[in-house]
Design a binder for these strands. Structure first.
Lengths: 180, 180
DNA sequence: ATTGACTTTCAAATTTTACTGAAACTTTAA
DNA sequence: TTAAAGTTTCAGTAAAATTTGAAAGTCAAT
């Protein structure tokens, strides 16, 4: 398993980006590799392609499974496990989004709610709480909205995105219709 | 500058989240602190409140300025510089989004474009390129859409988000209008 | 041109995070 | 029940990121 220059570049780039998406470099590379590979890969092939230890691959796979980003494939008559991306690019992106929401936004919302609910004990706290309320409202709106968007079919979502800013015209229109 | 338990919790939490949003723990704490503080704070006050070194604050401020998240305030007759969040919560969130797009999505799009443009040199590369094309299209759609959304006024955006799932009705509506 | 109040820089120390590889574990087949 | 082929775990090590603090820099007032 040796990658051409072009493919290696892509995989390395995924590594750099990996940390931004919520995992570490190696795991980013693993996702990149699996995505561009037509055949499922065994742990050894991954280790070889990325020049990392077998143990590291094992830990990476575990992490990717907790994100639901890879699926395991068993080939009859072969005891090795093979790994492949769990769904289309679109599915993967969705899962990353969803998972990050769970890990980052939700705990923050909880903390903010708890903080806001108890009465301010000073002027400073009163101001701080107003700000926290703002953050809370923002996060909640965004969370709800992204949940709604996920309910739309990919086609509807495409339509909506392609509407772009002219979506505002449609909204205005809707307002007018409602008033009638 | 000593924080009440509640405020300290919030600041620490911002620290944890900081790394998710693209900066490190300390810088996350700094943002949290500035956001909940009604008065602008001097570098020394920040260092004291967060129990970190003066030098660290200086570097953090520099980083936050590169994200355009803080503004400097000069008080007449006082040589110290004071720092405050650069805009509302909404503005800050927007800036983080915008900045991350620049730092993460844009370079990825460039790499993908470059990779896709040159012809595949093998079957593997051909498959890989198809996948890269998918990623490219996804990122481009999302980028364009977020740019469009940023053009809407906050009120329009609020309206849109609050539409929630009935957004699909709006889409249907649009379809019908087009057909006429 | 010196002092004092402040800020910035950056090499070195520290802390955190990731990786390796050998040992332990699991599973299948003979 | 043993061996062989595979996977996982985790203590120790290596690498990366962060932090400190002392020194250098800036600037206004004297």
């Amino acid at each position: 398993m040796i990658l051409s220059q072009k493919l290696e570049n892509f995989v390395l780039h995924c590594g750099e980006m990996g940390s931004r998406w919520g995992f570490n470099r190696t795991i980013g590379q693993m996702v990149g590799l699996l995505v561009i590979s037509e055949q499922p890969l065994s742990a050894n092939e991954i280790a070889e392609a990325l020049r990392i230890s077998r143990g590291n691959v094992s830990m990476g796979i575990k992490e990717l499974q907790s994100w639901q980003l890879v699926k395991v494939i068993h080939v009859p008559g072969d005891r090795k496990e093979y790994y492949a991306p769990n769904g289309s690019i679109w599915d993967l992106a969705n899962k990353v989004f969803e998972e990050r929401r769970k890990r980052e936004i939700d705990p923050t919302l909880t903390l903010l709610r708890d903080s806001i609910i108890e009465p301010a004990e000073s002027n400073e706290e009163a101001y701080a709480q107003e700000q926290m309320q703002q953050i809370h409202d923002l996060l909640e709106t965004v969370t709800k909205w992204s949940a709604e968007l996920q309910r739309l079919s990919p086609e509807q979502l495409q339509t909506l995105m392609k509407l772009g800013s002219s979506v505002s015209k449609v909204i205005d229109l809707k307002d007018k219709l409602l008033k009638k």
